[in-house]
Write a protein that binds this DNA or RNA. Structure first.
Lengths: 149, 149
DNA sequence: TACTAAATTGACTGTATTAGTCGAGTATAC
DNA sequence: GTATACTCGACTAATACAGTCAATTTAGTA
């Protein structure tokens, strides 16, 4: 039950794009250096976000990435799911049927996991990227610059 | 952000002890076979629960494990934390100071993680073992027997 | 058209965690 | 004293995490 760097990088990258709409498309390198993310690793993250339809890529010289929709309509949950699959996965609920147990709806532990999963999803889904950008701008000032955060 | 087998085994073991107070102490072997948990692995789990003060062990022949307190006063969160440490750990908040970032209270992503962490903790902390036992008895009948669950 | 900047892909590596297993040792009831 | 049962530490295989590397494709620009 830990949050991963990949998820954090994804959120920071999407926030960065949201905050720099004026200079779209934004290049991987710029996002990487501004947010303190290893460039090659960020490429993986952005590729996953592209496959999930959250960002769009523009290839070739002076290409880069931009958001496909408004920061108001992208939730933190969207980004996390794009990078890690379902939030708080429950082992016996996925995979092939061999290791699924056959009385899932009766399993007390699974019911607990489901309630926890739902609680965390609610938090992530009702927080939009715009919410996070607002909070960030408030704290950092207009520049949005923040060291290693 | 996944739940682990160890956590599930721990919850099931504690539930089993709660449901069999009449035959305390209960032996590892019995818990393992009744709950479908690898015996040796369960020993590790029970040892961790003992160190956390959730169960007490009685050594020697006809020894075993019993709960140290009422199932009403043990929460699922207690069990999970005993087995996995803090719930939903946030990488940059623990470990040695070298990889801690120095403006934690300003980090938007960490704030999001904290809210998610708090949501999940609430669910796990307000669910008691007795709650889970009740649900289980309701579904399975008095015997409490349940295959592979 | 050639050059170059940038995304894209897939394979590769090291480390940590998960999910166990094994075996030797210790305590205690009988 | 011996069988039973907990205790402890090391060990292993598989998976996930966090990157890195090299080769390729695409597209803007001189």
């Amino acid at each position: 039950m830990n949050f991963t760097s990949k998820e954090e990088y994804g959120l920071r990258a999407v926030m960065h794009l949201a905050m720099h709409e004026a200079s779209w498309p934004v290049q991987t390198r710029e996002v990487a250096s501004a947010e303190g993310i290893p460039e090659q690793f960020l490429e993986q993250v952005l590729a996953a976000l592209r496959r999930a339809g959250i960002v769009r890529s523009i290839r070739g010289a002076s290409g880069g990435y931009e958001l496909t929709s408004s920061p108001h309509s992208i939730s933190a949950g969207d980004v996390v799911r794009a990078l890690s699959g379902p939030i708080a996965r429950i082992p016996c609920l996925d995979g092939d049927s061999t290791d699924k147990c056959n009385k899932l709806d009766r399993c007390v532990v699974v019911n607990l996991w489901k309630r926890a999963q739902s609680a965390i999803s609610q938090v992530l889904d009702k927080t939009t990227i715009q919410d996070m950008v607002d909070e960030r701008m408030l704290r950092d000032g207009e520049s949005g610059f923040m060291m290693h955060i």
